[in-house]
Every structure is written in structure tokens, then in C-alpha cells.
């Protein structure tokens, strides 16, 4: 196996460990940190099922952002929607054989996924253009958008500019997944794309991108408004 392949195999496994391990570490850490008092943001359902149902609606619609800033909602919702299709588009590289519904939606997923640069550029411009957002934006905020943009552009170049050997890429990825690595395709654009994804994997759990998991554990939105009926004990409150 070439030195390059060894390097990529090693760094891919490291990336996977950091990404999944980091996610688990952060989310379990959140879940285990106590909530001394009940602090649901009201009005809020009194039952766990009611809260779950409301949360599904909030997450699928980005309701709070919709109510807070429509123009940012357009960019933020657009970005996440496109990312779903990018994910669908990439699943075929990790599944063998590709199940039929997934195979059928590929052209559509490509069509939507190819729009990825649009919301990213829009959100970056919005940060720079509106005085409030310029004020709050740090290098790290632009970095997250820029990283995704570079990943998107390099990925699109594989499809439209420097045609990559999809079969070879799939063999490489499946090899990694099945713990029997094969040679990495020595296609420069692919190596750029894949390297950037690894950077994202390392960065994700320890940056604001953790919001993806954090949204499921936020005490204000996920606690039920059940104070009158359910006794809540503060684990460090003493009695």
C-alpha cells in the first residue's frame, strides 16, 4: 500500500473516532449535567409526548428563526435542506448494493445538492452586510461557512469539472468501513474534497456545529411544563 493510502487510512480512522467519539462525549456530557430547577420556556406542553411533538415541528420548520428573522431563515433553512440532499446523494457511496428508492432519487438529490454554495455565500454575505451580524461574527463563524463552501465546491468539481472515478472512490470508502483499506484514488480534486471533509469531522464536535445535537437537549425547549404535577429534585440542592 502506498504511503499516501496509509496516511489517508490512518487519518480517516482518526477522524471517525474524533467525530463520533467527540459527538458522544459532548452530548452525553450535556445529558449528564444536572438541571437544578425546571426552566421550560412557556407556553410549553405538560407531557413529554407533547414536548416531543412540538420539538419535531420546531426542528422541521426552524420555527423560532422563522419568527425571529425571515431573511436569515431563508438562508439557514435553505442550507440545512440542501445538506439533507447532499447527504442522500452521498449515501450511495457508502451502501452496497444501493437500495432502490435511494437509487431513484439520485438525479433529484444532485439537482438540489448542487445548490449548496448558494445559501453559504448568502449567509456569509449576510454576516458581512448587516451591522448587527457583522458585530457578532467572528473568524470562526466565517470559517464554518467557508469550510462547507470549499467542501461543496470541491465536491461539485468532481462531478462537473474533473470527472472522478466514482467506482474507485466507493471501493476506497467501503474498504475503510469494512476495516480492510484499499488504495486511495489519487485524484487531486478528490483528495482535496476528502481532506476537507476530514477537517470538518475533527472540527465539528468541538465547535458551534455541535448545535446539531444540542438542539435535542436544550432544557428550555425540551423540558415539559409539569412543575405542578411532577416533583423535581435538584441533585446538588441539599434538603
Amino acid at each position: 500500500m502506498s504511503a499516501l493510502s496509509l496516511f489517508y487510512a490512518g487519518i480517516s480512522y482518526a477522524g471517525a473516532v474524533v467525530f463520533f467519539g467527540g459527538l458522544a462525549y459532548k452530548l452525553i456530557g450535556y445529558a449528564l449535567t444536572p438541571s437544578p430547577l425546571k426552566i421550560p420556556l412557556t407556553p410549553q406542553p405538560a407531557s413529554a409526548a407533547g414536548v416531543a411533538w412540538k420539538a419535531v415541528g420546531s426542528i422541521l420548520s426552524f420555527r423560532a428563526l422563522w419568527n425571529g428573522d425571515r431573511w436569515t431563515w431563508v438562508g439557514g433553512y435553505g442550507l440545512h435542506l440542501v445538506l439533507v440532499f447532499v447527504f442522500i446523494r452521498h449515501l450511495r457511496l457508502f451502501l452496497s448494493p444501493v437500495p432502490w428508492p435511494l437509487a431513484d432519487v439520485q438525479p433529484f438529490a444532485l439537482l438540489i445538492g448542487a445548490l449548496l454554495p448558494l445559501p453559504l455565500v448568502y449567509l456569509m454575505a449576510r454576516r458581512a452586510a448587516v451591522d448587527r451580524y457583522r458585530q457578532i461574527s467572528s473568524g470562526a463563524d466565517y470559517f464554518a461557512l467557508a469550510l462547507l463552501l470549499l467542501i461543496g465546491l470541491s465536491g461539485l468539481s468532481l462531478k462537473f469539472l474533473f470527472h472522478a472515478d466514482v467506482v474507485g472512490i466507493k471501493e476506497f470508502l467501503l474498504g475503510l468501513m469494512l476495516l480492510s483499506p484499499v488504495e486511495v484514488p489519487e485524484h487531486p480534486a478528490f483528495l482535496v474534497h476528502f481532506s476537507l471533509v476530514l477537517v470538518l469531522g475533527f472540527y465539528f464536535p468541538f465547535s458551534k456545529l455541535i448545535h446539531a445535537g444540542g438542539v435535542l437537549l436544550s432544557p428550555t425547549t425540551m423540558q415539559a411544563d409539569d412543575a405542578p404535577d411532577v416533583r423535581h429534585v435538584n441533585p446538588w440542592g441539599g434538603q
Binding site: 449535567t33 437544578p36 458551534k208
Partner: peptide
């Protein structure tokens, strides 16, 4: 405090600075 209050720990870490709150 961040180990005593889930709210504080999460609210320190999960903000994406979308700006939705900025003028509220």
C-alpha cells in the same frame, strides 16, 4: 457553574450566532 447547570454549559456551546435574537 457550568458543571452544575446544564443550561449554562449548553448555552455557552451551542449558539451559532444566527442573529435571530439580536433585535428582540
Amino acid at each position: 457553574l457550568k458543571e452544575k447547570y446544564k443550561s449554562l454549559k449548553m448555552f455557552m456551546e451551542v449558539c451559532v450566532k444566527c442573529g435571530s435574537c439580536a433585535d428582540k
